[in-house]
């Protein structure tokens, strides 16, 4: 239980990054698979070779990830390269760069060095207390992202993923917005990578492979669960208004959904392991989870229209969901 929550919360930071590119910018960014390792490698090498403070190492990991995002952004915005290809190119190049960062090794162990986790252990932050601390950290990241997306710049970024022509006609440089978005996104991914490296006690060249799927699964699972009228109704209530506000509600609900989605994804993975699948099956299971999450909304509409075809409420609901799809 605590393992599920712990991993779910840490990977939620990465999932928030994926949400930023995938949902807000509408940019399927595959850089994530390696920028995660870039963050982990940067933090690990700074801690091992330069005795860096573990928290500062997290900051450095954010910057390293952000740089990777900027490269992808430049390839796409200035070079006119297709988003998917730009991401793949950076991802491939980063594999070599990550090996370089780690001193031409595939693995940098952190044993015997001070990390965030040794600090947690020394101060008795374990078990549920650790979950609480991690929840607060993730909440801070979420709030920072919420705030950023609600600023003048953030609105420009949101609209860039929504209607490029329109934001340009109001003087927003969509190129700049995409680069900023990719930088912040991959910065968050790098941050999560550094966190995981400190948790597992090593940075490994293959630790990020397939992570884009984990991020997508979290985003899509969260959305599948949160995009319904119950959440909308709740958001309209007094408590909902207090939690999600009215200024940037869509984003606040979505980032919450992403965090919940990340935890549910972990629970699903742990469940699969518990019923006898082995870790080698994880990619397959991740893919199946994503497919199921993508199919839930369609399936929901079909069963509803079968059971109550004449209900106007359902029809209206159907129309809105259809319009969204």
């Amino acid at each position: 239980m605590t393992v599920t929550l712990e991993l779910g919360l840490i990977y939620a930071i990465m999932a928030l990054g994926v949400y930023l590119t995938f949902r807000i910018l509408n940019f399927p960014d595959l850089t994530v698979d390696q920028s995660f390792t870039t963050g982990a490698a940067t933090a690990a090498i700074l801690i091992v070779n330069y005795e860096f403070d573990p928290v500062l190492a997290l900051g450095a990991a954010f910057i390293a990830g952000a740089l990777a995002g900027i490269v992808t952004g430049l390839l796409h915005a200035k070079g006119g390269i297709n988003p998917l290809l730009a991401g793949i190119l950076t991802m491939l190049a980063l594999y070599s760069i990550n090996l370089r960062i780690m001193g031409n090794r595939a693995n940098v162990p952190l044993l015997g060095h001070d990390t965030l986790y040794t600090w947690f252990g020394n101060n008795g932050i374990t078990g549920w207390t650790l979950i609480l601390v991690l929840a607060i950290i993730v909440l801070i990241v979420k709030l920072a992202l919420d705030w950023f997306l609600g600023t003048d710049m953030g609105l420009g970024l949101q609209a860039t993923g929504d209607n490029e022509e329109m934001v340009r006609s109001f003087g927003v440089s969509t190129d700049a917005m995409k680069i900023v978005g990719l930088a912040v996104s991959n910065g968050l991914v790098g941050l999560a990578g550094a966190f995981i490296a400190q948790k597992q006690g090593s940075s490994d060249i293959s630790m990020g492979i397939g992570l884009i799927l984990v991020g997508l699964a979290s985003v899509i699972l969260g959305q599948a669960l949160f995009k319904n009228r119950f959440v909308d109704r709740f958001a309209d209530s007094v408590v909902g208004r207090f939690i999600f506000g009215t200024r940037n509600r869509e984003v606040l609900i979505a980032t919450t959904a992403v965090i919940i989605g990340s935890i549910i994804y972990r629970a699903a993975v742990q469940g699969a392991l518990a019923v006898g699948f082995n870790p080698n099956d994880m990619r397959l299971i991740s893919a199946i989870i994503v497919v199921i999450a993508l199919l839930i909304p369609r399936w929901r509409i079909r069963t509803k229209s079968k059971t109550a075809p004449k209900s106007t409420v359902n029809q209206a609901f159907q129309e809105t969901t259809d319009a969204k799809a």
Binding site: F148, G150, T151, D152, M153, G154, L155, G156, F170, G171, V172, R247, N248
Partner: peptide, 11 residues
């Protein structure tokens, strides 16, 4: 904010 800088003030 047509033609103006877009900073980090609340939108």
């Amino acid at each position: 904010r047509r033609g103006m800088r877009r900073g980090l003030a609340f939108g």
